[in-house]
Design a protein around this nucleic acid. Structure first.
Lengths: 350, 350
DNA sequence: CTGAAAGCGCTTACAG
DNA sequence: CTGAAAGCGCTTACAG
């Protein structure tokens, strides 16, 4: 593994010049430049990323964090729980786009003591250029710590703004509004809302969007038709079982996510209810699986690529100190498949 | 952000001593040690990870790679394609376990020129301590490059052994054997094998395991009953459609993965065939979703935690130069749910 | 047990 | 345009 010193020697120049050629930071004569390039190629030279990070006091890496109520703070720690398959899609895009921008993605090992301060310090000590937070729980104390720490940070699906922090999110409430209006147009009036944990921004906004659509249609939102669940399939399945035991006076269920909808679909199936003939169901996210559920799921698409690109653009701008821009609210769009249909009877169960 | 220099000054010792106390590398007097600790606490000192990596010529980070036939080499790049939800589970566990061991997880940005040599060099220049390769395509040239490069490497689900490389994998063929014998015990004899890309080790081994079980039962494996598909739901769905158009003389389908099974389930549903009354279906992996498919899926469980722990144990041993151990073959286990049942008629379709 | 010194591989003012 | 020198924040022989 050749060093810049060896390149310099071979090219007959100083290490400073090698560095300049490498970084194109300063004007160098054509002759010198090509000599250096030749030497680099001959030696198979590649700069030592660690040394660069040390002297520049900044690495070319972005830290990735995923917050969950659980507070483990471990990025992917909860992804197995089906609740977060959507964020997997996000992760995939984040990985691709950051690589394209020439940044590494770093998932730091958690330091001793899980305090927000320690979290921030560990990021600082790794000299990360910036941080991407796929945040769920709005009350996570690390959000505040990050805001104050002045590390360039972009939050996805959580609110957070500071001198070096901004957020990006989907237009959740509009998406839920679209789904609800779609059902209203099909004649549904008794609509259940199965919401994710309302401490999470997306859950709260989706719930509100749906309720507003109802209100706009002159329907008094019935609290009895709101039921709570975790984000994952398991909990939604159980919530649906409970719901069916408690009340059957509805013809549609708006769920907080596709994975939740899958649990609902299964509970309905077990109860002998047909979708959409007996009950219409909508999801949220539009994960790939939606096309293969039985029946294929009507849902709200989130534009993951736009979210990630927007987030990264904002983040890089903050890193490069080009100043802070506005938050980004990415539009959402209803995708109609086969899990929704016209209401058959005003109230099918009684 | 305090440096070791400031800690040294406050404690009235040299930086060398601070370093010794920090790393517990050498004997220090109790008095000095507690003075240094006090100073560190007072200053909120945390060592600069980058500087440590430079001087030690090694960082405390593990690179993560996921190979795919596509050759992009980007870790999570293909995860959105439903084929790899299983590896998401793996990723989650890897993240947790590496964090517990005090290692960061690094997904390096791809360097200019996608050659295997460049890939290896980029890992070297990042001074990663080791590399975890969630590898699918056995023919990926980077496997060879890694083998020669002498970077401690553990392959998961791909073969690779060298002076500093080893592999860990599930007992795929035994899992497929269990699934097939389960079907044989239920009276099935006309069994379709829908395999993933046979260039991938898991696909090949699973296919072979199933065929061997058949042979052992005295059934001549019919090549007409083998059909090929990609790992994901979409391709399996299409493969199943094709299969049904071509041949209906079977009573069970052994698929290469749970996500594939979901596509098959859907194709069967559309064709008006009931599972398991008309056709039995098995998956492989046992992802969480298996409990919520319609019907819940009989599958083969892979012990992800054992795989990851084993892989990490081997990797750390190579990093610490404790020598190389044997590969690990993790046992698999059949999980019977509702997608398999007794054959109704010897050959239900004719 | 502890300190002074050298060094990890780079970059960046400062001169020229 | 280019080089000599200092320095990023640590660790580790080498003495004592």
């Amino acid at each position: 593994m050749a060093t810049s010193e060896e390149v310099a020697k071979l090219a007959g120049v100083s290490r400073a010049t090698v560095s300049r050629v490498l970084n194109g930071s300063a004007r160098t004569s054509d002759a010198v430049r090509s000599r250096v390039h030749a030497a680099m190629k001959a030696l198979g030279y590649e700069p030592d990323v660690v040394a660069q990070s040390l002297v520049r006091q900044r690495s070319r890496a972005l830290a990735l964090g995923l917050f969950e109520g659980s507070g483990t703070g471990l990025p992917i720690a909860h992804f197995g729980h089906t609740g977060t398959y959507f964020y997997l899609d996000m992760l995939k895009i984040i990985e691709r786009e950051t690589a394209e921008l020439g940044y590494d993605l770093l998932m730091p090992s958690r330091p001793l003591g899980n305090s927000p301060e320690n979290y921030v310090r560990s990021l600082q000590m790794r000299r990360v250029a910036g941080t991407i937070m796929l945040a769920l729980d709005q009350s996570d104390p690390r959000i505040q710590a990050l805001l104050q720490a002045n590390i360039p940070t972009v939050f996805i699906d959580a609110l957070g703004q500071g001198s070096r922090a901004i957020y990006v999110k989907s237009d959740h409430s509009d998406g839920a509004r679209q789904a609800t209006e779609h059902l209203l147009a099909l004649g549904h009036t008794r609509i259940v809302f199965m919401t994710g944990p309302t401490g999470d921004l997306p859950a709260m906004e989706r719930l509100l969007g749906g309720q507003q659509a109802l209100a706009k249609a002159g329907i008094v939102p019935a609290t009895g038709l709101i039921c709570h669940s975790g984000w994952n399939t398991e909990e939604a399945y159980r919530a649906a079982i409970d719901l069916l035991a408690r009340c059957r006076d509805f013809s549609a269920i708006v769920t907080g996510s596709d994975m939740m909808a899958m649990g609902v679909l299964r509970a309905l199936y077990e109860a002998g209810l047909r979708v959409p003939q007996d009950v219409s169901v909508t999801g949220f996210d539009d994960i790939t699986l939606c096309e293969y559920t039985i029946p294929p799921l009507t849902t709200v698409r989130q534009d993951r690529v736009a979210m990630v690109r927007g987030a990264l653009q904002r983040l890089i701008a903050m890193i490069e100190e080009e100043g802070i821009a506005d938050p980004i609210i990415v539009p959402t769009q209803l995708v109609v498949r086969d899990s929704t249909g016209p209401v058959q009877r005003p109230a099918i169960f009684t």
